[in-house]
């Protein structure tokens, strides 16, 4: 199956805006974050197909995962 990963802001550095991951069944956003060498703490908003997703959601072929870093300044 093929998953599209959309990265935002600082998460693009060295990785680009969009990454495709092809994998057998059972892939989760946690696996994707690990594969892309992103620290879990650097992910704030995690969307699966534009909706709030969880790290352990099992993904399906064609799913789109979006990852945003935490922003907290004022």
């Amino acid at each position: 199956m093929k998953i599209e990963v959309r990265l935002f802001a600082t998460l693009r550095k060295g990785r680009g805006k969009k990454v495709y991951i092809e994998e057998d069944e059972g892939l989760t956003p946690k696996d994707i974050i690990d594969q892309l060498k992103i620290d879990e703490k650097d992910v704030s908003i995690l969307l699966v197909n534009g909706r709030d997703g969880k790290l352990d959601t099992v993904l399906k072929d064609g799913d789109i995962v979006s990852l945003f870093p935490p922003v907290g300044g004022g």
């Binding site: 802001a9 703490k41 704030s44 908003i45 995690l46 870093p69 935490p70 922003v71 907290g72 300044g73």
Partner: peptide, 10 residues
């Protein structure tokens, strides 16, 4: 937005 509360902003 801040799932785990120990997050450090960018």
């Amino acid at each position: 937005l801040y799932v785990s509360r120990d997050k450090k902003g960018i």
